[in-house]
Protein backbone atom coordinates (compact mmCIF):
# COMPACT_ATOMS: atom_id res chain seq x y z
CA UNK A 1 0.00 0.00 0.00
CA UNK A 2 2.93 2.32 0.66
CA UNK A 3 4.10 1.69 -2.92
CA UNK A 4 0.73 2.72 -4.33
CA UNK A 5 0.80 5.83 -2.22
CA UNK A 6 4.27 6.68 -3.52
CA UNK A 7 3.09 6.27 -7.09
CA UNK A 8 0.30 8.72 -6.53
CA UNK A 9 2.86 11.39 -5.74
CA UNK A 10 4.61 11.35 -9.11
CA UNK A 11 3.59 14.34 -11.16
CA UNK A 12 4.59 15.34 -14.67
CA UNK A 13 7.22 17.99 -14.23
CA UNK A 14 9.64 20.19 -16.11
CA UNK A 15 12.70 19.12 -14.19
CA UNK A 16 12.26 15.51 -15.20
CA UNK A 17 11.89 16.43 -18.84
CA UNK A 18 14.90 18.68 -18.71
CA UNK A 19 16.97 15.86 -17.29
CA UNK A 20 15.75 13.46 -19.95
CA UNK A 21 16.43 15.96 -22.67
CA UNK A 22 20.01 16.44 -21.45
CA UNK A 23 20.53 12.70 -21.28
CA UNK A 24 19.06 12.05 -24.69
CA UNK A 25 20.93 14.93 -26.28
CA UNK A 26 18.06 15.63 -28.65
CA UNK A 27 15.53 18.42 -28.42
CA UNK A 28 12.36 16.34 -28.72
CA UNK A 29 8.97 18.03 -28.79
CA UNK A 30 8.82 19.96 -25.59
CA UNK A 31 6.61 22.79 -24.51
CA UNK A 32 9.27 25.42 -24.20
CA UNK A 33 12.29 25.79 -26.39
CA UNK A 34 13.70 29.19 -25.75
CA UNK A 35 16.25 30.02 -28.48
CA UNK A 36 17.41 33.15 -26.66
CA UNK A 37 17.96 36.59 -28.16
CA UNK A 38 18.81 36.75 -31.86
CA UNK A 39 21.67 39.24 -31.48
CA UNK A 40 24.15 38.59 -28.69
CA UNK A 41 26.44 41.28 -27.47
CA UNK A 42 28.77 40.19 -24.69
CA UNK A 43 28.96 43.59 -23.02
CA UNK A 44 25.22 44.16 -23.23
CA UNK A 45 24.60 40.74 -21.67
CA UNK A 46 26.97 41.54 -18.81
CA UNK A 47 25.31 44.87 -18.10
CA UNK A 48 21.86 43.31 -18.26
CA UNK A 49 22.97 40.55 -15.92
CA UNK A 50 24.16 43.08 -13.37
CA UNK A 51 20.86 44.96 -13.68
CA UNK A 52 18.87 41.77 -13.24
CA UNK A 53 20.86 40.62 -10.25
CA UNK A 54 20.43 43.90 -8.44
CA UNK A 55 16.72 44.08 -9.01
CA UNK A 56 15.28 40.66 -8.32
CA UNK A 57 11.58 41.07 -7.60
CA UNK A 58 10.25 38.12 -5.62
CA UNK A 59 6.75 36.74 -5.97
CA UNK A 60 4.71 36.33 -2.78
CA UNK A 61 4.62 32.57 -2.58
CA UNK A 62 4.59 31.80 1.09
CA UNK A 63 3.02 28.45 1.74
CA UNK A 64 3.76 27.66 5.38
CA UNK A 65 6.06 28.59 8.26
CA UNK A 66 8.93 29.80 6.08
CA UNK A 67 6.61 32.49 4.74
CA UNK A 68 6.81 34.34 8.03
CA UNK A 69 10.60 34.41 7.88
CA UNK A 70 10.33 35.63 4.31
CA UNK A 71 8.06 38.45 5.54
CA UNK A 72 10.59 39.25 8.26
CA UNK A 73 13.23 39.48 5.58
CA UNK A 74 11.15 42.07 3.80
CA UNK A 75 10.61 44.17 6.91
CA UNK A 76 12.71 46.88 8.45
CA UNK A 77 15.19 44.83 10.46
CA UNK A 78 16.61 42.59 7.76
CA UNK A 79 15.46 44.65 4.81
CA UNK A 80 15.83 42.97 1.47
CA UNK A 81 15.09 46.31 -0.24
CA UNK A 82 18.71 47.33 0.11
CA UNK A 83 19.63 44.45 -2.19
CA UNK A 84 17.14 45.45 -4.82
CA UNK A 85 14.11 43.34 -3.97
CA UNK A 86 12.13 46.40 -3.26
CA UNK A 87 8.64 45.03 -3.77
CA UNK A 88 7.05 41.62 -3.53
CA UNK A 89 4.85 41.27 -6.57
CA UNK A 90 1.69 39.23 -6.11
CA UNK A 91 1.39 38.53 -9.79
CA UNK A 92 3.82 36.04 -11.36
CA UNK A 93 3.85 37.99 -14.59
CA UNK A 94 5.56 40.91 -12.86
CA UNK A 95 8.18 39.03 -10.90
CA UNK A 96 11.35 37.26 -11.77
CA UNK A 97 12.16 35.36 -8.60
CA UNK A 98 9.98 32.71 -7.02
CA UNK A 99 10.92 31.95 -3.43
CA UNK A 100 9.11 28.72 -2.63
CA UNK A 101 8.72 29.07 1.11
CA UNK A 102 7.00 26.08 2.60
CA UNK A 103 5.69 22.62 1.91
CA UNK A 104 4.30 21.76 -1.50
CA UNK A 105 1.79 18.98 -1.46
CA UNK A 106 -0.03 17.06 -4.11
CA UNK A 107 -2.97 19.45 -4.26
CA UNK A 108 -0.76 22.50 -4.51
CA UNK A 109 1.65 21.11 -7.13
CA UNK A 110 -0.40 22.05 -10.24
CA UNK A 111 -0.72 25.58 -8.89
CA UNK A 112 3.07 25.79 -8.45
CA UNK A 113 3.56 24.60 -12.01
CA UNK A 114 1.03 27.11 -13.38
CA UNK A 115 2.70 29.95 -11.54
CA UNK A 116 6.14 28.90 -12.73
CA UNK A 117 4.93 28.75 -16.33
CA UNK A 118 3.44 32.22 -16.05
CA UNK A 119 6.67 33.86 -15.00
CA UNK A 120 8.52 35.47 -17.90
CA UNK A 121 12.11 34.45 -18.58
CA UNK A 122 14.70 34.91 -17.22
CA UNK A 123 13.29 33.52 -14.04
CA UNK A 124 14.92 32.11 -10.95
CA UNK A 125 13.74 29.86 -8.16
CA UNK A 126 14.95 29.69 -4.57
CA UNK A 127 13.89 26.66 -2.55
CA UNK A 128 13.59 28.00 0.98
CA UNK A 129 13.38 25.69 3.91
CA UNK A 130 13.75 21.97 4.33
CA UNK A 131 10.28 21.21 3.01
CA UNK A 132 10.96 22.84 -0.35
CA UNK A 133 14.38 21.22 -0.61
CA UNK A 134 13.51 17.65 0.19
CA UNK A 135 10.18 17.38 1.97
CA UNK A 136 11.69 18.27 5.31
CA UNK A 137 10.14 16.68 8.40
CA UNK A 138 7.39 15.17 6.25
CA UNK A 139 9.52 12.96 4.04
CA UNK A 140 8.79 9.81 5.96
CA UNK A 141 7.67 6.31 5.09
CA UNK A 142 4.00 7.13 5.72
CA UNK A 143 4.02 10.15 3.42
CA UNK A 144 1.01 10.21 1.15
CA UNK A 145 0.65 13.82 0.31
CA UNK A 146 3.82 15.89 0.45
CA UNK A 147 6.05 16.37 -2.59
CA UNK A 148 9.55 15.66 -1.40
CA UNK A 149 11.30 18.69 -2.70
CA UNK A 150 10.15 21.12 -5.34
CA UNK A 151 13.09 20.25 -7.55
CA UNK A 152 10.94 17.32 -8.56
CA UNK A 153 8.67 19.86 -10.23
CA UNK A 154 10.67 22.88 -11.30
CA UNK A 155 14.38 23.62 -11.75
CA UNK A 156 15.83 25.28 -8.65
CA UNK A 157 18.75 27.69 -8.58
CA UNK A 158 19.55 28.13 -4.91
CA UNK A 159 18.69 25.95 -1.91
CA UNK A 160 18.42 27.62 1.50
CA UNK A 161 18.30 25.03 4.26
CA UNK A 162 16.71 25.53 7.65
CA UNK A 163 13.45 24.86 9.41
CA UNK A 164 12.75 27.73 9.01
CA UNK A 165 15.97 29.37 7.84
CA UNK A 166 16.81 32.66 9.48
CA UNK A 167 16.15 35.79 7.41
CA UNK A 168 19.91 36.29 7.22
CA UNK A 169 20.13 32.84 5.66
CA UNK A 170 17.61 33.80 3.02
CA UNK A 171 19.49 37.02 2.29
CA UNK A 172 22.63 34.91 1.82
CA UNK A 173 20.60 32.80 -0.62
CA UNK A 174 19.72 35.89 -2.62
CA UNK A 175 23.34 37.01 -2.62
CA UNK A 176 24.36 33.57 -3.86
CA UNK A 177 21.78 33.92 -6.63
CA UNK A 178 23.30 37.26 -7.57
CA UNK A 179 26.65 35.54 -7.69
CA UNK A 180 25.19 32.84 -9.90
CA UNK A 181 23.76 35.39 -12.33
CA UNK A 182 26.78 37.64 -12.62
CA UNK A 183 29.69 35.55 -11.43
CA UNK A 184 30.63 38.03 -8.71
CA UNK A 185 29.35 38.04 -5.13
CA UNK A 186 28.45 41.74 -4.88
CA UNK A 187 27.83 42.72 -8.50
CA UNK A 188 27.59 46.41 -7.77
CA UNK A 189 30.60 48.23 -6.37
CA UNK A 190 30.03 48.45 -2.61
CA UNK A 191 31.37 51.31 -0.54
CA UNK A 192 33.69 49.84 2.07
CA UNK A 193 32.12 50.61 5.46
CA UNK A 194 34.88 49.09 7.57
CA UNK A 195 38.19 47.33 7.14
CA UNK A 196 36.57 43.93 7.45
CA UNK A 197 36.86 41.86 4.24
CA UNK A 198 33.74 41.67 2.08
Amino acid sequence: MAEEKRNMLRIHSYAGELRERNERGTPGNLVEQDPGPIVRLQLAEKILDVCRANSLWPMTFGLACCAIEMMCMGMARFDIARYGSEVFRPSPRQSDLMIVAGTVNKKMAPAVMTLYEQMPSPKYVIAMGNCAISGGPFAVKENYNVIEGIDKLIPVDVYVPGCPPRPEGLIEGILKLQEKITGVRHPFPQRKVSDAPN
Binding site: K5, M8, K106, K107, Y144, N145
Partner: peptide, 11 residues
Protein backbone atom coordinates in the same frame (compact mmCIF):
# COMPACT_ATOMS: atom_id res chain seq x y z
CA UNK B 1 -8.67 18.33 2.69
CA UNK B 2 -7.42 15.54 0.46
CA UNK B 3 -7.03 16.17 -3.27
CA UNK B 4 -9.80 15.12 -5.61
CA UNK B 5 -9.50 11.61 -6.88
CA UNK B 6 -8.22 10.28 -3.58
CA UNK B 7 -11.52 8.91 -2.31
CA UNK B 8 -9.97 5.48 -1.95
CA UNK B 9 -6.98 6.67 0.02
CA UNK B 10 -8.64 6.91 3.46
CA UNK B 11 -5.35 7.58 5.19
Amino acid sequence: ILPEGSEDLKP
